[in-house]
Design a binder for these strands. Structure first.
Length: 562
RNA sequence: CGGGGCGUAGCGUAGUCCGGUUAGCGCGCCUGCUUUGGGAGCAGGAGGUCGCAGGUUCAAAUCCUGCCGCCCCGACCA
């Protein structure tokens, strides 16, 4: 493809509203342009890459017997009401104003609608149906370019089985297909077991990519592959010591001491000798949550323990409930439920707030002084703690969710009446699974992982072209003739070539554009080299350059692409 | 939805606090000449409802009010 005749509007300057590398580079390389917050237009270069991702996904889905559909994005609201998801999605769902339609944020309902009455017998099952199509979600805050948009491409797949064992098989097939897809694309990913969340169902796993732009925080063990969202992650952690002798309780005046750090400093004690109290409100009742030292309460874990939503108590509530402000609250004398992190189990000789401003209490023996206390895992895992599986160090970092697979069960088939007749002539709800990949996220994540200060570093599978052919000074006949010849030669040999044949662009301009666009290999044709019958071949990623005789070029490239 | 920032030509911006000629600069664009191995030089040129609406004033990019849009942090999130 000739660059002189094609629309690849590269930018020298960083667009003001882009922050993360993938977003900046996608805009600068002329791949996308923003139309509105969270809504992006794909330009030819960007769309070319997107199509490559789609093709890889399609091949792997087809390889496991998936059948490609194309469902409408415009859906009758009625179907969504039958599963209760108009309410569940709430403001996240786009509603059409002048007719009772919604814009589909996902397609469980519509796929199930089509399965109903069509998959009538156990003999019709299993099936894997999928599509690659636009989803609409009214995200309150789109961000990070294409990573969180209000309109985005999703590969969504649905499995239909007649038994739970069948679902297990389908799920496993999809799991394998996903691994193949991400491997082929060339992304470094890891898999996290996740709670199924609002979609309903049992088992689910997320395919994640490490990135500072991520919206999930995960704990990951490089050594054994343990990975979990911090909301549920666990680690091996030393419990507080139980001293052989319990001291008596005593009150200490601690003027202006609020934080655990200040308390430790004031009393010259270790953080592990303290118990931090936080008050949460659950069902309008206060619950005192006791943590060791500066350990952080994990609100998701707390909610799982209590069985519903919690919120931290407001400052004025604290005073009313405990008689003290934050920083002076403790379990002694607290009337109400007290739960503590497992790390504190049966701890003694502990220091905590006195429920009286500027006072703390020492010598607390939780076993003796707080007999009604309950223990649960409530901590948030921190980097450097030990993996529960292999004992090596865990790392906590941000990650982007690329794909999610889960076992749905019968939630949608029951709600929509999608049933089949089993071997005994009994009507049963179809057992379903649901599997998604964010297509643009694959693109953005790839760039997040593969770029340098000059631009993108494509690998062959996603590269919009294989080779960037640069004719440096196209006004010189030797250069234009040779590069034209090479262009034909490479194209004839099956390479997809982007040919920078622009006549008026300076050499430096072309080099920088080529580095920005980042095709794997650059073939540089200049007067200088041609004098000795060579062109230069530069590998973008390593920066390695080699002078190659024009007649050896094809053989040389073959070697590089091997 | 809460907090913060921003909105001036296709892009990046100065000017706004403290109102006052024709709104300035760089990139890009057009014409001509020169130049061509790391974002060229000279000369000439085009391009602006200063986000929108209202108000204050002799006078508004600048001050006031409302709205809209965009970015960041948080809340939320299949």
């Amino acid at each position: 493809m000739r660059q002189s005749k094609n629309f690849i509007p590269t930018l020298k300057e960083v667009p003001a509203d882009a922050v993360i590398p993938s977003h900046i580079l996608m805009v600068r390389a002329g791949m996308v342009r923003m139309l509105s917050a969270g809504i992006y237009s794909f330009l030819p270069l960007g769309y070319k890459v997107l199509k490559k991702i789609i093709e890889i996904i399609r091949e792997e889905m087809d390889a496991i017997g998936g059948q490609e559909f194309h469902l409408p994005a415009l859906n009758p609201k009625e179907i969504w009401e039958q599963t209760g998801r108009v309410e569940a999605f709430g403001d996240t769902m786009f509603h059409v104003k002048n007719r009772d339609y919604v814009l589909a944020p996902t397609h469980e309902e519509i796929m199930t609608y089509h399965a109903k009455g069509a998959l009538k017998s156990y003999k019709d099952l299993p099936q894997i149906w999928y599509q690659i199509q636009t989803k609409f979600r009214n995200e309150p805050r789109p961000r990070s370019g294409v990573i969180r948009g209000r309109q985005f491409l999703m590969k969504d797949a649905y499995s239909f089985d007649s038994s739970w064992e069948g679902l297990d098989k389908s799920y496993e097939m999809l799991d394998k297909a996903y691994r193949k897809i991400f491997d082929r694309v060339g992304i470094k990913y890891f898999v996290v077991g996740a709670s199924s969340g609002a979609m309903g169902g049992s088992k689910s796993e997320e395919f994640m990519v490490r990135s500072d732009a991520g919206e999930d925080t995960v704990a990951y063990c490089e050594h054994c592959g343990y990975a979990a969202n911090v909301e549920v992650a666990q680690s091996v952690i030393e419990p507080v010591k139980r001293h052989t002798e319990s001291r008596e309780i005593y009150e200490i005046s601690t003027p202006n001491v609020k934080s655990i750090d200040e308390l430790c400093e004031f009393l010259k004690i270790d953080e592990r000798e303290t118990a931090k109290s936080r008050i949460y409100i659950y069902n309008d009742e206060p619950v005192l949550v006791l943590m060791s030292g500066n350990d952080e309460v994990n609100e998701t874990k707390l909610e799982n323990v209590l069985g519903g939503a919690v919120r931290p108590a407001h400052p004025d509530e604290l005073k009313e409930i405990t008689g003290a402000d934050a920083g002076s609250i403790g379990p002694i004398g607290f009337k109400g439920r007290i739960i503590a992190d497992l790390r504190l189990k049966d701890g003694n000789n502990l220091y905590s707030g006195a429920n009286k401003n500027d006072y703390h209490i020492g010598g607390i023996d939780l076993k003796r002084d707080v007999p009604q206390i309950e223990y649960f895992d409530l901590r948030t895992v921190q980097s450097g703690e030990k993996c529960t599986r292999c004992g090596k160090e865990l790392e906590v970092f941000k990650a982007i969710e690329l794909g999610h697979i889960f076992k749905l069960g019968t939630r949608y088939s029951e709600a929509l009446g999608a049933e089949f007749l089993d071997e005994n002539g009994q009507s049963q709800p179809i057992i379903m699974g649901s599997y998604g990949i964010g297509v643009e996220r694959v693109l953005a994540c790839f760039i997040e992982q593969n770029h340098d200060e000059k631009g993108i570093l494509w690998k062959k599978p996603l590269a919009p072209f294989d080779v960037h052919l640069l004719g440096l000074n196209m006004k010189k006949e030797v250069v234009s003739e040779t590069s034209e010849k090479i262009y034909k030669e490479l194209t004839g040999a099956g390479y997809d070539v982007l040919f920078d044949d622009r006549v008026d662009a300076q050499a430096g301009f072309k080099f920088n554009d080529a580095d920005l666009i980042g095709l794997p290999v650059q073939v540089i044709v200049g007067e200088r080299g041609l004098k000795e019958g060579t062109v230069e071949v530069k590998v973008r990623k390593t920066g390695d350059r080699a002078k190659v005789k024009t007649e050896d070029l094809l053989a040389y490239l073959k070697e590089i692409f091997k």
